[in-house]
Amino acid sequence: MVRRPLLARAGGLAIGLAFALPLAILGVRAFADTWRAPALVPQDWGLRGFEAAFGGGATVEAFGNSIVVALGATALALALGWPAARVLGERRLRRPGVVFVALAMPLLVPPYATGAGLTEWFIRLRIIDSLGGLVLAHLTAVLPYVVLVLLAGFGTKVTELEDMGRTLGLSPARRLAWVTLPSVAPTLAAATVLGFLVSWSQYGSSLAVGGGLPMAPLVLFPFIGPDPQTAAALSLLYVIPPILALLVTARAASSPL
């Protein structure tokens, strides 16, 4: 292999540290049963945080629900965002600005306003208090991010590569697998991770639309502030699925089909 230049390695180290340092601090906090302020390290180590984290028994269910909802919302957002981003990215629309603003609207309106109205409509439509309802609720938050990220990947460049594939005798399926997906893979991966993260951390809509269905942020948020140790313990667990999502997609992006 070629020796990686110093800069790349320094960059890798910096990224690694940026990830590891907050995690390390969380890790110490999570196991600190006694930690009075001026001390650099805790006086007592223990598992109180984790015991409290799993105290209710709903924590495992909450993480499971959140993973299902995040995967569902992300998959749906990719399916809907893909054509939208293609049409926008290839500038095939006469008024892309209008579509763009419409898509970004959920990001511009304060979440409180959308949240209350959303709950009301979900109740009327009788899709409230279910995982399916949660997927749709999260979709409204996830979709704009996914489209905005996909937009960066879809452009005339991809169309040009696809045209090349067509003239070289690639069938539509092969074109998708050999040309389109690999050339947008990094963007697709970024959109997937971002979509997953946005869904994963939805507090307001999870509570309002879920009607009490256990979800990961609902378990974690109440502890932030009042109980730093339990919050840290839950946070350690909380970051695992997003990190897994990151690793899986990063791998998928770097070794395409």
Partner: peptide, 16 residues
């Protein structure tokens, strides 16, 4: 297009 047995070299190389 993919059944026409026509190959095209474009202005840009369009390599994957």
């Amino acid at each position: 297009a993919h059944r026409r047995r026509i190959a095209v070299v474009f202005q840009e190389p369009r390599l994957l």
